[in-house]
Nucleic acid binder design. Structure first.
Ligand SMILES: [Zn+2]
Ligand SMILES: [Zn+2]
Ligand SMILES: [Zn+2]
Ligand SMILES: [Zn+2]
Lengths: 144, 144
DNA sequence: TCTCAAATGTTACGGTATAACAAGGTGATT
DNA sequence: AATCACCTTGTTATACCGTAACATTTGAGA
């Protein structure tokens, strides 16, 4: 199964980083994985409540924050949502493409273009931190 | 005065576009202009309430939406905020740099780098729409 | 003047996120 | 084992962000 495989990789990844993928965090990760695209915190919260009876917002937000910090998820600010990172392990900055019509998500490597951006920003005195780029558009299927 | 000059330019800009910069919208624009960096909707709302006694969220959100659509402001999703566009008139896509420490904002031209990004995204089947890029980092003053 | 469409006012609500403190678990030190 | 420090999770409450829906006003053109 795809999910189990990802979880296993995530486990190794966390161990290498010296952080703990606890049962709760793993459960949240599985819930996010069960979606195909962007997921919202309160969707995850609702799912979590189905599985364990009760859960409050901080529970899910803390888990999501951890998973983002660990590099397993990315936050999509423009949509108040989260997506699974499909480049765990390969140190990277993501170029995340979101289809505005269907919600499909694709993640490419933003490293080359961020080099250019860092140089341009440097000219204005800005030191750009590690981050992802998000772009919205339409995927191939939705353009037909 | 800097602000008056900008307002005047905004006025011309709106007239060219065939949209109306009403008194309310102008007032909101002035409030946003009075800040140096990113401004939040509820900050504007509070200011507006000081000036006219009462105002409700939809009032300010509608004005902000209009100003964004007119190209006079940009929305900064990552911060739930808005900034003034300093390239009104020059048709452009902005590369917006936000200092995470002090909130200072700089806007450059993102057109060249977006050409590269469009090509890269096209390889994955995505047609990316007109948009701005936001990057966070630290400005020169905050790095000292 | 009349009419219609756009803009604004008003109320109410729903979605997003965090503060603050309590309680539980884990592993190292003694 | 008992203690302690630290991280994780639970719990309550609240603050912040944004919009739906409908009423009312305004203003440009017939
Ligand atoms: Zn990634
Ligand atoms: Zn699509
Ligand atoms: Zn701009
Ligand atoms: Zn700064």
């Amino acid at each position: 199964m795809e999910i189990a495989c990802f979880i296993e990789a995530a486990d190794r990844h966390c161990q290498q980083q010296g952080v703990k993928l606890t049962a709760l965090r793993r459960q949240v990760l599985e819930l996010v994985l069960s979606y195909s695209g962007v997921v919202k915190a309160y969707q995850v919260l609702a799912d979590l409540q189905k599985q364990r009876g009760i859960a409050a917002p901080p529970t899910v937000y803390r888990a999501l924050d951890f998973l983002v910090a660990a590099g397993l998820l990315h936050k999509v600010d423009a949509l108040n949502g989260y997506i699974v990172c499909h480049h765990v392990g390969c140190s990277h900055e993501g170029l995340i493409l979101v289809c505005g019509d269907c919600g499909r998500v694709e993640e490419l490597d933003a490293t080359p273009v961020l080099d250019v951006l860092r140089q341009q920003a440097g000219g204005a005195g800005f030191a750009i931190s590690q981050q992802n780029l998000m772009l919205t558009g339409r995927c191939e299927a939705c353009r037909t």
